[in-house]
């Protein structure tokens, strides 16, 4: 499969995502510079983490006006797989590809640590390598991961299995004690209505190899590759 990693000025997980896709998963991968207004020949796009445009004004607010974004939106509308990780998730929110918005962490501090996630829907392009309700460990690293949306949107997300990951305890317990940033309904990752665009705060590329202390992130990229293969077959 051919992945594209979109690079904005200030992206800093672009090389990490590239490594996770190309070296760890063995897929084709290319960087896509934010000035590019055409995207062709890709099976999946990654919007990586970082501080695009310094996260000035609001996280993702300036990046969403990059020349590449209309092409990303088109790619998504045509059913292409898009995963936005951390800052990538924030950009997808600002661009309107996903509903809701990000607030500062409840603690008002940047938090970098491993967290447990519960896989709430394993019947998706991003989670098919996990069991339903499986608890996985993936690190977070963000200052603004406190997801917010209005009650109607939340109902919509819940009813349609669009919340893929919830923060939880080691045994899958869901509650405030296990929510690192105060996000609504303990949301860690959601998809769009069509299910082909995922935004998640945790960083799967940081735990795709055992040398980094965990391999649960591997399953997310592997799910995408598996889904793309099946779609082709």
């Amino acid at each position: 499969m051919r992945f594209g990693v979109v690079v904005f000025p200030g992206s800093n997980c672009d090389a990490d995502c590239y490594h996770a896709v190309k070296d760890v998963q063995g897929q084709d991968c290319e960087y896509i510079w934010h000035q590019q207004s055409k995207i062709t020949g890709f099976d999946a796009l990654v919007l990586p983490g970082g501080f695009s445009y310094g996260d000035y004004l609001r996280t993702g607010a300036i990046a969403r006006f990059s020349p590449v974004m209309p092409a990303v939106v088109d790619f998504a509308r045509q059913g292409g797989l898009v995963i936005g990780i951390c800052n990538g998730f924030q950009i997808l929110l600002e661009a309107g590809l996903l509903p809701g918005a990000m607030l500062r962490n409840k603690s008002l501090k940047f938090i970098c640590k491993p967290v447990n996630l519960k896989v709430l829907n394993n019947d998706t392009p991003f989670t098919n390598q996990f069991n339903q309700d499986e608890v996985i460990e993936i690190p977070i690293a963000h200052g603004e991961g406190n997801y917010y949306c209005d009650p109607a949107t939340l109902g919509e997300l819940k009813d349609n299995g669009r919340i893929l990951f919830s923060y939880c305890g080691p045994e899958g317990q869901i509650g405030d004690d296990h929510n690192p940033n105060g996000s609504l309904n303990h949301i860690a990752g959601i998809t769009n209505k069509e299910g082909n665009v995922l935004g998640m705060m945790p960083h799967p590329e940081r735990c795709s190899e055992s040398v980094l202390g965990g391999t649960n992130g591997y399953g997310i990229f592997a799910s995408m590759i598996n889904w793309l293969k099946e779609a082709r077959a």
């Binding site: 970098c112 690190p139 940081r206 980094l212």
Partner: peptide, 16 residues
Amino acid sequence: VYTQYDHQVMTNTAVV
């Protein structure tokens, strides 16, 4: 202190 620092970016940190 160190949970406020991103200590894993670049995906090289083998002992955190």
